[in-house]
Amino acid sequence: MKTVACFAAAIGIFASTTSASVQGFDISHYQATVNFAKAYSDGARFVIIKATEGTTYIDPSFSDHYTQATNAGFIRGGYHFAQPASSSGAAQANYFLKNGGGWSSDGITLPGMLDLEYAPSGNSCYGLSTSAMVSWINDFITTYHAATTQYPLIYTSTSWWQLCTGNSGSFGSKSPLVVARYASSVGTLPNGWSYYTIWQNSDSAPWGGDSDVFNGDLSQLQKIARGS
């Protein structure tokens, strides 16, 4: 099993990256039809696809999206929309793993992504205290790591992270950061991360879904997909 130190070294290459980038996007069933061939032709090289939510929901388009992305040549992975009020982090990690969130060291599969954002119900932090939220996240990522040897990517915004985790610095050495900020610059990052791995910089990608930019070149993205 890979150690935390080894994984941190693998993602640490991005700290010094200043100019190289790879375009990607993320999608769910809201994008029922995606022209993956066009997206690849336009230069996109990775896509992150919604797989699950909580412990009862599987995105109905996940399997089709994943197959099409694979056939078009993309590096791809699944993401899990967290519902921390409904069940434990471990339960949701295991559900994600069983329904599209797994990982293999094949060079084209990204570790799964844990999507942490404002609750659709308006209860921003799902009724959890900051300490309970940090424990929930830790439960999820350690369960995922135990099953795959990889820590999942963590998707969040700086504002949510500050509000709902108390700006915890506990995860920057483990999970790569996917930061959401729709602006001309990435801005202040959540505590614990000195650099981002992926920046979701717009909610309107040309091929549907959200626009993402990987902070590195294609060979570095492939390293994450290989787990090395």
Rank of each mutant, 00 (worst) to 15 (best):
Q92K: 02
S173M: 05
T197H: 13
P120S: 10
Q83K: 15
F74D: 01
D64L: 12
L110P: 01
S61K: 15
F140D: 08
S175A: 15
G127W: 07
I75W: 06
V34M: 07
M133R: 08
Y95P: 01
L177H: 05
G24W: 00
S159Y: 14
G54F: 00
Q92N: 13
S168Y: 05
G54N: 04
F171N: 11
A119H: 11
N215E: 05
N99A: 03
A32V: 04
F7C: 00
T70I: 03
G208V: 05
G12A: 10
G78S: 02
S41N: 15
G187M: 12
I58W: 00
A37V: 14
N167K: 07
G209Y: 09
A90C: 06
S194H: 05
E117V: 12
S185R: 13
A90P: 09
I224T: 09
R45N: 11
Y196I: 04
I137R: 09
G107R: 07
R226E: 12
D217Y: 11
S105F: 07
A37Y: 12
Y155P: 08
N167P: 08
G89W: 05
G102E: 09
G78W: 01
L116S: 02
I154V: 14
L218E: 06
Y195P: 07
A85K: 15
G227K: 09
F14T: 15
Y118F: 11
L221D: 03
T143L: 04
G43S: 10
W207T: 11
Q23H: 05
